[in-house]
C-alpha cells in the first residue's frame, strides 16, 4: 500500500478527482463566460470574443457624456489626502511675503466678530482650493475675486504653505463651554446630516474639509447659510450643500458657535 502511486493514470482516485474537478471548472467557465452573456437579452456584443471578455471583466473607461447645459461653474480642484503636505522653506517664505496683503482681513486679532475667516494653521489643501476656486470664479466674493485673479498657481501653493505653517493662536474668546451639540457629534442621520465632527475634526478629518476650531462664528454661519441656499457652490459634488440645506437655523447657530468657542 505504501508503494501505491497517486499521480498516475492507473490510480482511480487521481483520475476521478482530477476529472471531476476539471470537468466542473470547465462547465462553470463555459456557463459563466460563454452561455450566460448570450442568455442576457438586453446586451449587445460585437462577437463571441467581446462577450467572453466582458464576462471575464475586461474593463473599459466609462463613456463620456458631454453635459449640454452648464448651469453654474463648479470647482475644478482635485482633492486628495496628503496633498501639499511637505512645503519647502522657500515656498513658506514666498507665501509669507504674499500674505502681507492678506493680513488686513485675515489676521487673528479681531476674529471674534469678524466676517473674515481666520487662516493661521488652516490646512494647506483648503487654502489652495479656495484660492483656486476664487480665481476661477467658482466661489464668488467681491474682495477675494480680484485678489485671487492676480495669483499664479505657485503663489497659491506658497500662500497655502505659509498659512498652514503659521501656528494657530489659542482662541481668546472661549464661550460658556456648553458641551458638544448633537448636530456636531451625531448629526441627524435620516436628514442625511453626518456629524460635523466626522469631517471637520473632533472625531475624524476628511481631505479638503477646513479646520473650524476658533473660526469666526459670523463667518461660519454665513457660509453655512450660503451653502444651504446654494449661493456658494464650490463644494465638490455638493458635499457641503447636501448637509447645510437640511440643517435648521438653530443647528447652524449651534455648530457655528461650538466651533468658534473651541480652542
Amino acid at each position: 500500500m505504501s508503494s501505491e502511486r497517486l499521480f498516475t493514470l492507473s490510480n482511480r482516485w487521481f483520475t476521478t478527482a482530477l476529472g471531476l474537478t476539471a470537468g466542473f471548472a470547465a462547465a462553470a467557465a463555459l456557463g459563466g463566460l460563454v452561455l450566460l452573456p448570450y442568455a442576457q437579452p438586453n446586451l449587445k456584443f460585437s462577437g463571441i470574443w467581446d462577450a467572453i471578455c466582458s464576462a471575464a471583466g475586461v474593463s473599459r473607461e466609462a463613456a463620456t457624456v458631454a453635459p449640454s447645459a452648464v448651469e453654474a461653474k463648479t470647482s475644478a480642484v482635485v482633492m486628495t489626502s496628503r496633498m501639499l503636505n511637505h512645503p519647502s522653506a522657500a515656498s513658506i517664505g514666498h507665501g509669507g511675503t504674499l500674505a502681507l496683503q492678506c493680513a488686513i482681513c485675515h489676521s487673528g486679532d479681531n476674529v471674534t466678530r469678524s466676517e473674515f475667516p481666520y487662516l493661521a494653521g488652516q490646512y494647506a489643501a483648503v487654502i489652495y482650493k479656495e484660492l483656486h476656486d476664487f480665481k476661477a470664479g467658482v466661489r464668488v466674493n467681491a474682495i477675494m475675486g480680484p485678489f485671487a485673479a492676480a495669483l499664479t498657481e505657485q503663489d497659491m501653493i506658497d500662500l497655502a504653505a505659509y498659512y498652514s505653517y503659521l501656528p494657530r493662536v489659542p482662541a481668546y474668546h472661549p464661550g460658556p463651554g456648553a458641551g458638544e451639540p448633537a448636530i456636531v457629534l451625531s448629526g441627524a442621520p435620516l436628514r442625511n446630516i453626518p456629524p460635523c465632527a466626522s469631517c471637520h475634526g473632533a472625531a475624524d478629518n476628511k481631505a479638503g474639509s477646513p479646520r473650524l476650531e476658533g473660526q469666526s462664528p459670523v463667518y461660519l454661519k454665513t457660509q453655512l447659510q450660503a451653502f444651504a441656499s446654494a449661493a456658494r457652490r464650490n463644494d465638490i459634488s455638493e458635499q457641503m450643500r447636501n448637509i447645510a440645506r437640511r440643517m435648521t437655523p438653530a443647528e447652524i447657530d449651534q455648530a457655528a458657535s461650538f466651533y468658534a468657542e473651541r480652542p
Partner: peptide
Amino acid sequence: PQVGAGFKFMHSALTAL
C-alpha cells in the same frame, strides 16, 4: 463593479459545491 459576471457565476457554482 470590478469583477466580471462570468467569474461571479463560476464562484457561485463552486459555492454550491
